[in-house]
Design a protein around this nucleic acid. Structure first.
Lengths: 156, 156
DNA sequence: GCGATATAGTTCAATAGTGAAACTATTCGA
DNA sequence: TCGAATAGTTTCACTATTGAACTATATCGC
C-alpha cells in the first residue's frame, strides 16, 4: 500500500471510530441504571466475569493510574456493588469482587445492551459480522501485545 | 444466526472494543502536545477539517450537551487555538474556526498519530484493512442513521 | 407590529474520572 | 536486618460532563 492510500485509510479509521464510540457511548449511557456510570459498569462487568481481581490489575486493563481505580471502586463499594477481600498471605493486596447485587445489576444492564446492539447488527450479514469481529479482535490482540513488549523493554 | 451465537458475538464485540479504545486512547494521549487533551484535539481536528462550525453542531457530533462544548472551546480559545466568529445575519450564532496555530498543532499531532497507527496496520493485509474499515464505516453510518430517525420521530 | 415561543450560546453548581506526588503498610532481597 | 520494591490510598488540581437557570436574539401567529 502506498503512503497516500495509507494516510487516507487512517483518516477513515479515525473518523469512523470517533463516530462509533461517541454514539454508542451515548446510547449505552441511556440504558445504564441510574446508580452506575459507564466506567463503573465496565469495572463491575470485568469483576463479574474475571473473579477476584486487584486494583493494580484493573489499572492495567483500564490503562489508567491506580488512583483512578481507587476512586471508581470506592464509589462502587459505597453502593455495596463490590466487596474488598483482603489477601490472607500478602496483606498489601486486596481482591475486588462483585456482590450479588452488583452482579444482578450488570446482568440486567447487559441484556438491555445486547438487545440494543442486536438492532445494529441486523445491518450486517452473518459473514460480515464474523469477519468484522475477527479483525477487531486481531487489532485488540496487537495492542495488548505491543504493551507487553514495551514493558519487557523497560525491564531490560 | 441463533440467539446463543448472537450473544457471544456481542460479548466479543464489547471486549474488543473496550480493549482497543482504552489502549489506543492511552497511546494517543502520550503523543498529544502538552497543551491539548484528547477531547480538545478531537474538537480542533473537526474544526480544521470542516471549516466554520457552530457550538450546537459540535454538540451533536460529540453527542454531549452544549455546555460541555462551551467549556472545551473556551479552553481552546484561551490558548488561541480557535477563534469565535459572530454570524453577520443571525446574531445568536457564533462560528468556530481553528487559528493557524491551532491548525499547525493538529497537523503535527496527526502525523505522529499516523506513524503510530501504521505500525499496528502492519499486522493486517491490505484486503483485511480495507474490509475492516468498510464495515466500520457501515456501522458508523447505521448509528448516524438511527439518530436521525429517532429525531424525526420526536418531531412527529 | 407585538407578544408568545423557540433557538444559540453562556454560566453555574455538582459530580466523575484522571495524573502526579506524597504517603502508609507490607514484603522481599542482599 | 536494613534498604528497596510493591499495593493501595489520599490529596490536589484539572478536564469533561449534565442539567437548570439565564441572556440575547429571532421567528411565528395573530
Amino acid at each position: 500500500m502506498d503512503k497516500e492510500q495509507l494516510s487516507k485509510l487512517i483518516d477513515r479509521y479515525l473518523a469512523s471510530s470517533f463516530t462509533v464510540n461517541r454514539r454508542l457511548s451515548a446510547i449505552t449511557r441511556d440504558l445504564l441504571p441510574d446508580e452506575l456510570t459507564l466506567d463503573q459498569s465496565a469495572a463491575l462487568r470485568y469483576l463479574r466475569d474475571n473473579g477476584c481481581t486487584t486494583s493494580s490489575e484493573l489499572a492495567e486493563i483500564f490503562c489508567v493510574g491506580k488512583s483512578s481505580i481507587t476512586a471508581i471502586i470506592t464509589r462502587l463499594s459505597d453502593k455495596s456493588l463490590i466487596e474488598r477481600v483482603p489477601d490472607e498471605k500478602d496483606r498489601r493486596v486486596t481482591y475486588l469482587k462483585a456482590t450479588p447485587e452488583g452482579e444482578r445489576l450488570t446482568r440486567q444492564f447487559d441484556s438491555k445492551l445486547e438487545e440494543m446492539l442486536c438492532e445494529y447488527l441486523s445491518h450486517f450479514t452473518d459473514q460480515e459480522a464474523f469477519g468484522f469481529i475477527e479483525l477487531y479482535e486481531k487489532l485488540a490482540a496487537a495492542l495488548v501485545q505491543a504493551r507487553a513488549e514495551s514493558e519487557s523493554e523497560e525491564n531490560r
